[in-house]
Design a protein around this nucleic acid. Sequence first.
DNA 1: CAACGCTATTTGAACGCTCCAATCGGCAAG
DNA 2: CTTGCCGATTGGAGCGTTCAAATAGCGTTG
Lengths: 374, 374
Amino acid sequence: MGTAHGRPPEKGGGVTLAMVARRAGVSPQTVSNAINAPELLRPDTLARVRQAIDAMGYRPHRAAQTLRTKSSRLIGYGIQPVDVDRSTPVMDRFLHALSQTAEEAGHRVLLFASPPPNAPEPMDAYRELLDTYSVDGFVLSDTHRGDPRQAWLERHGVPFAAFGRPWSGRQIGDWVDVDGARGTAAAVDHLVELGHSRIGFLGWPRGSGAGDDRAGGWRDAMRRHGLTVRGRRAASEDEVTPAAAAVGPLLDSGVTAVVAASDTLAMGCYRALRERGQSPGDDVSVVGFDDSPAAALVSPSLTSVDQPMTAVGRECVRLLLARIADPSRAAENLLLTPSLVPRDSTAPPHATAPRTAAPRVPDSRATDESHSPR
Amino acid sequence: MGTAHGRPPEKGGGVTLAMVARRAGVSPQTVSNAINAPELLRPDTLARVRQAIDAMGYRPHRAAQTLRTKSSRLIGYGIQPVDVDRSTPVMDRFLHALSQTAEEAGHRVLLFASPPPNAPEPMDAYRELLDTYSVDGFVLSDTHRGDPRQAWLERHGVPFAAFGRPWSGRQIGDWVDVDGARGTAAAVDHLVELGHSRIGFLGWPRGSGAGDDRAGGWRDAMRRHGLTVRGRRAASEDEVTPAAAAVGPLLDSGVTAVVAASDTLAMGCYRALRERGQSPGDDVSVVGFDDSPAAALVSPSLTSVDQPMTAVGRECVRLLLARIADPSRAAENLLLTPSLVPRDSTAPPHATAPRTAAPRVPDSRATDESHSPR
DNA sequence: CAACGCTATTTGAACGCTCCAATCGGCAAG
DNA sequence: CTTGCCGATTGGAGCGTTCAAATAGCGTTG
């Protein structure tokens, strides 16, 4: 009666299962059942208990549940040092999706400082969280070739879901990834539709999984459209200045559009064009990848391939929780489709002064795509 | 003996205090003391216990500790929806610093989806985490005028530390903030040193704490240098296109440099210059604020004011943990100094064609700074 | 030498929950 | 009326830790 004013209880702290039980005139176990297995209770009992629960503002003590059930309902996510924001331009969206989805399923995200990949004992942090029963599983991101984490976790029977497919070796565990090839293919389609035919690709050096994937998407789309691929590819590390240098031969060869493997590379392309007195979007169309915040900021705004980070985060959580619920289930993999965000950096090619045939460009940077295996 | 191979124990899971105690020939409580109050043990006992601990790879069960001590050693951080990345351009760095520092102090960060400020019950998520003993305190960010969180938390006696000072009303609790005024002042100093004297400011409409702070820093620095302030200020919401429009009158008035309240506004300035056939850095210097990833990407690269996000995160954790350790201590506030990152968008003013006197600009956008209070 | 004080260690209990097995009440079948 | 059964509810124990209080050990002191 004291708190029975109809409004939400002021303070719930300190209310235990036993107190609720006393008030509802049932045993503690029945209150527990009312929460965890309501179908066991007779409807009238259930109603009575429920009323007591919200009258007193009861909330189960998470630690007590964890101690008893050995499940913390916490998901570990190792956040990496950010000096390399190369691979993680849009992690906020991912993290938010992670939290949001986890929350909807009654879980939460535990952030920890993941050691850099080259640390002496990269798995220590993971091991500690497990040994102390702090988390039920992990979400991984920024996976790379030879990443030891998936194998380690699998060997120890720890549930996990990765953002990023294992590029080498056998498939391990559940993962979600973005179909980079489809993204660059969409970029090519978009450019072809605008009337471009001489479309170059500016990517990273061969060897990175995501990079080769994106390059492959461009190449296949070009072929599908019956367009020339030879001499149309350049590579550079993910920095503006080197990219500006690397894209030079491509521009020399007379391309009217460039598809870049990242927004950073696209920015290199912008710079190279400006240095030649040309203007991106106007003289040469440019498409980036990632749809980082910078894409909307620059002038002309950059057409870019948007990775569905929210969906990626959501699916990671979904796969992880499914794995936790049933450790023996078959591994599930998801390839999500990115979407092209057209902006001002792509336009029909100039009708004026199009060089009809691009001269062969024997530059070392511009590698010959046809030599690559498959 | 079984595991005594000298190498780190393979699996620590399942080892309890009692097992260690049995092995070391002491009581469980003594093992507990060895960890939490080693000074209570005789040196030889301590050594024996410690040896047993790492021989068995013992790790205390976090939930059991939490249950007993009522302290989870977890710090709550409510991550906000990112569609407005206006205020959170560089949150990754902040989050990483948060995790890192927390970890060094034996804590971790619990991420939860913080409801948007206008939600019906914005404190529900906070309340739940407290009622369930899931966290020991909170770190807040993106605080705004009239933010209900500080007051609520203080009223409920919950430890917290905020990134962002309370701009209105009385001071509540511990906070860390960046001295925006010093940032814009440093920008002005830098430009004056390069030889500029007609320096405009492009900011947000009056009323936002951080925005007015940054504007004030510009204004005061201008006066300190004996430079004209009247007619040199324009305002726009934090979007590129409106900013490009708003900065027009400023450019008309003949400024040779613009200090912007954000990188986004600076990008608006870039666009406006390009539309006039001028080039940023070359014809008019531009300084941004935030040093977002985009700043290094654009051409010319953007001189910007870098917020020391790592230090901010570190200090937030430090203040919060101090408050948790001693709830009655006096509130502590920190104003950190941002640093200017000079890049290519700032250069000496053109020697050619400087209009010696700027015409009065009776544009509605360019407000007269001298009318402002104080 | 007994009484004392101090330190190092142990004992018992409790934190709040859920698992497991046992119990209760009611109802249909024998 | 007893028996068996089934669904709803309860009692007791235990998860692994730390708190509070009790005890054992042991050198000091009057």
